[in-house]
């Protein structure tokens, strides 16, 4: 399978990428690792006429651990998150979830900013950033803005990111409280049929593939805050969700999985 023809430009900086996006409008696409975009282009589900390669902006590959916040460059690869000792100590949930994405080859190309911008509700890392209460930093022609992860996703593969904006940094709080990540899939490298990420012993709980966007499980979080047991809180996991039905699972089975996985995750994280 070969993508439809397109023009290609390498951006040396975020500013240059943003200006190229401005020039080419919504026909242009940013490419970081390309491991979500290229398959879509091969299937002709995406046919951008201009691909702006941001994968060489090495200035945006870093993990800076502060006293309260971990700042991660948008082009940091999953493999770098997975193997970072500093991240394992300051935010083990994020490092662990990075190690569960796809397979080693995919993790050497995929980037944190890329997976967030792609906004696939079945992806692992957006849910982790959501459970942690992270912040997404976007650079556009007017400068830089910060977007709370909970406000970032708007629909299936859609976010509040404008056509001429690029994610440049992701911030998550230092988080060493009880955490767990539960991913249910049939084969090792598959996307989650349902997944659950729990941060800070249940203060943050998020669900993968239970709707058109990665979801915070608000009812579960409220129950945990009110002193409910993992079983009691997990019983509410499907509240407010709109799970899809597909080849892998019907909606009611996904709801069942969400409850089971949430109980496991809360128990492991408490």
């Amino acid at each position: 399978m070969i993508p439809a023809a397109f023009d290609y430009a390498v951006a040396e900086s975020a500013e240059q990428a943003v200006s190229l996006l401005g020039e080419h409008g919504d026909e242009a696409k940013l490419m970081a690792g390309g491991h979500s975009l290229i398959p879509m282009m091969k299937f002709r589900l995406a046919t951008p006429t201009m691909v702006v390669d941001v994968g060489r902006i090495d200035d945006l590959r870093y993990i800076n651990v502060g006293s309260e916040v971990v700042s991660i460059g948008a082009l940091t690869r999953h493999a770098e998150l997975e193997h970072s000792t500093a991240l394992a100590e300051s935010c083990p949930l994020l490092a662990h979830v990075a190690s569960k994405v796809g397979d080693p080859q995919v993790r050497h190309k995929g980037t944190l900013g890329g997976t967030l911008a792609h906004a696939d509700p079945a992806s692992d890392l957006p849910a982790a950033v959501l459970a942690l209460g992270g912040t997404i930093v976007a650079t556009g022609p007017g400068g830089v803005r910060e977007i709370a992860a909970v406000d970032f996703f708007t629909g299936y593969f859609e976010s509040v990111l404008a056509d001429d904006e690029m994610i440049t940094e992701v911030r998550v709080p230092v988080s060493t409280g009880g955490w767990s990540f539960q991913k249910f899939n049939r084969r090792a490298q598959d996307w989650a049929i349902v997944g659950v990420a729990v941060a800070e012993s249940g203060k943050g709980v998020s669900l993968i593939n239970m709707g058109s966007i990665p979801l915070r499980a608000g009812a579960v979080e409220a129950a945990v805050a009110g002193g409910a047991s993992p079983a009691e809180a997990a019983a509410l996991a499907a509240e407010g969700t709109s799970a899809p039905s597909d080849l892998n699972a019907a909606a009611d089975y996904r709801e069942h999985l969400a409850r089971v996985l949430t109980e496991r995750a809360l128990s492991a994280a408490s």
Binding site: M1, H35, D53, H108, Q189
Partner: peptide, 27 residues
């Protein structure tokens, strides 16, 4: 598979394993 699942096209780029069916030559 041509869809970055099977790994038959794995090569090393700057020492790291990558699936070459999911990368552009220009990259």
């Amino acid at each position: 598979c041509d869809t970055s699942s099977c790994g038959a096209c794995t090569i090393h780029i700057d020492g790291e394993p990558v699936k070459s069916c999911t990368m552009l030559a220009v990259q």
